[in-house]
């Protein structure tokens, strides 16, 4: 029975043998949290286990009062009848896969992950296991990420264009992970200063403190009133699009960095001038490669429309199931565009 290691419950994914939850949606007694994104790290639980590499971000997210145990990569610790260890997932700084050993089996809950190189975090570590729980945010073969070098060239080309036209370039992206990755990737190619929306300041600082080299940044709020932003790069979370905050830039060209930008319809629907394909999730080849790398006998797929991935894995000789087939009940975690 795989369900003695993993069982969906209303509070989140539960491990009966170890009596703990992974990324619970409601307060619980014991939680292992894979990474600091808001849909995974929620405050209110009595005790948290997290990766040390993401400790600072977790304290930021969960609040100073939370009891947080930090663990080194691959360090083994015991919860109930299970032995737990955390391994890099390559998603964002400190993002972990959870390895659970117990009842004579090994399960790995990969959390969110990607296989593409990222200068802001440790690369995904393939962990051999019997049961592999994978995400499938981009679980269709149309999603194959272009090389990051090409995307950065596109962004730089866009900046040059904006400078020529005398307009500001506002790049929207998620404040945790994506923003820092873009800042770090660009640092290898240019040294221009980037203006940051307030929601990104502390997170960028946390990455800097963790030793990640990024472009120099200044808060937008510290610019003098009436400053001319023509030709400047500004980074902001998508929630700032269309807000009064945008007025200060005068004429601006807008871009969005997201895996969803791969599809023209999604690009046009969002109404940004430019879409840049950058994702912190695995693309289709990345998902298939990870399933092969961990050598699991059974694959459970979480997140949204995983049906295509499941069927394709079955067609190619794997035992694959939706996570809900383990029984129990869990609210549908349809991957939102925020989860990118």
């Amino acid at each position: 029975m795989d369900s003695d290691l993993l069982l969906p419950r209303p509070e989140g994914l539960y491990c009966p043998a170890g009596d703990f939850f992974i990324d619970p949606m409601q307060p619980v007694a014991r939680a292992v949290v894979t990474h600091a994104h808001g849909d995974h790290a929620r405050s209110g639980s009595a005790l948290y286990h997290v990766a040390r590499a993401g400790g600072a971000l977790m304290r930021e997210r969960l609040g100073a009062g939370s009891v947080i145990h930090e663990h080194d990569w691959s360090e083994r610790f015991t919860l109930g009848d299970t032995t737990i260890s955390l391994h890099p997932s390559g998603h964002i700084l400190g993002a972990a896969q959870v390895r659970i050993e117990g009842r004579g089996k090994v399960a790995v809950v990969s959390g969110d992950y990607k296989r593409d190189p990222d200068p802001t975090c440790e690369p995904f570590e393939p962990v051999p296991c019997d049961i592999f729980v994978t995400e499938s945010t981009f679980g269709l073969p149309i999603y194959r990420w272009p090389p990051m070098h090409d995307v950065v060239s596109d962004i730089l080309g866009w900046l040059d264009e904006c400078r020529e036209r005398g307009v500001a370039a506002v790049l929207f992206c998620y404040a945790l992970g994506k923003a820092q990755r873009v800042l770090a990737e660009m640092a290898a190619r240019t040294d221009r200063t980037v203006h940051l929306h307030g929601a990104m300041l502390r997170l960028v600082e946390a990455y800097r403190e963790a030793g990640v080299r990024m472009l120099p940044t200044v808060p937008v709020s510290e610019s003098a009133r009436g400053k001319d932003f023509a030709g400047e790069l500004i980074m902001a979370p998508p929630s700032a699009a269309g807000s009064t905050w945008m007025r200060r830039f005068g004429k601006a060209s807008t871009g969005f960095a997201s895996g969803w930008m791969q599809v023209r319809g999604a690009r046009r629907r969002r109404g940004y001038d430019r879409g840049f394909v950058v994702s912190d999730h695995a693309d289709w080849p990345g998902l298939l490669r990870s399933v092969d790398d961990c050598g699991a006998k059974r694959i459970y797929v979480t997140h949204g429309d995983g049906e295509a991935l499941i069927r394709h894995l079955r067609d190619t000789g794997h035992e694959a199931f939706p996570l809900r087939s383990l029984g129990g009940t869990m609210p549908d975690l349809r991957s939102s565009e925020e989860g990118d």
Partner: peptide, 16 residues
Amino acid sequence: WLIDDCYQHVGDLAET
């Protein structure tokens, strides 16, 4: 079936 799934997602055969 996988091509069909992708087409349903993209909504445009040329782009798929």
